[in-house]
Write a protein that binds this DNA or RNA. Structure first.
Lengths: 162, 162
DNA sequence: TATTGTTATACTCTATAACTATA
DNA sequence: TATAGTTATAGAGTATAACAATA
């Protein structure tokens, strides 16, 4: 099949062939790993683990402990310790639910929200890397991610999306 | 700017706008997280942690303990325990280097390679998700990943690429 | 009875520091 | 002296099982 000019900017060689599923998975895994590394490093500079940072992101809006466990993809018993540590540093707080006195809602404090903003600002490599993409590349990548996510997260909806 | 027909298959609406860097980062993070979850689950079904599985992948070819630490992105002291556990299960083995008697080369056993093959085969969601992409989408996604990776991993080359 | 959050336990991963054996 | 691998230690994340409070 003849290869036409590249559709989203035409920066690369025309010889680029469509990769196999395995090659694609390796490439996405490498990018995902590097992205996560940048995220963990940014969180670490603020003295937070990556799980703590992710939890902080989830609780920008009040969330029950149980649901937080779902969003973090871990057992509910872990969340106790994770929120304990966030609370001890004043980044989040527990509040009893009025509707159901068994549940406790977790919410980020203003300091917690500020920490999260700083982490995002500290992700220098990711910002540079994604910022370097052209409009068409961004659009295509975003669209492909949107198509992939529901398939990748298919049966975890209840647990992962909380 | 007027929007032309989509270049890689034209499946979606023409109204899709170019996302901001932040939106793009969130989308890629979500896909990366879901991918990693699929990987960890596949490894878990074989009784392996994700780090053990990644280590197994690295040592398909003989690698010094120190270099393995670099590829895993962790301190060298951790690798002792990780390889201990792989070795205890017969999935990898240590061999003294002939050139430098201080270094130990780690290599996957045939059983270890088989375990790795099974993990890859067990990543059902990822295989379905990426397998569902058309040739043009695969090509574009692969190319963008290739452009992103060196920027994301820029200064970690020595540590991350071993 | 079922559910929420917690505790107790045990394992793994993690970094730091100190050690040994080589170089 | 410098480096490779190990050990010791402490902290954090993880799942399982059992528990108290509430529904």
């Amino acid at each position: 099949m003849p290869r036409r000019g590249l559709p989203y900017g035409g920066r690369m060689a025309e010889t680029t062939a469509a990769p196999t599923t395995a090659e694609l998975m390796d490439a996405v895994a490498a990018v995902g790993t590097a992205y996560f590394h940048d995220f963990a490093a940014a969180a670490g500079r603020l003295g937070l683990t990556s799980v703590q940072a992710k939890a902080l992101d989830v609780v920008r809006e009040p969330v029950p402990m149980r649901a937080l466990a779902g969003r973090l993809g871990c057992d509910a018993s872990n969340v106790t310790g994770i929120v304990d540590r966030l609370e001890a540093r004043g980044l989040a707080r527990r509040q009893a639910s009025e509707a159901d006195r068994r549940v406790k809602m977790v919410t980020a404090t203003e300091e917690g929200r500020e920490a999260l903003r700083r982490i995002r600002a500290e992700m220098h490599r990711a910002r540079e890397a994604f910022g370097s993409l052209g409009a068409e590349q961004r659009r295509v990548l975003h669209e492909i991610c949107g198509a992939l996510l529901p398939l990748l997260a298919a049966q975890d909806t209840a647990a992962d999306q909380g």
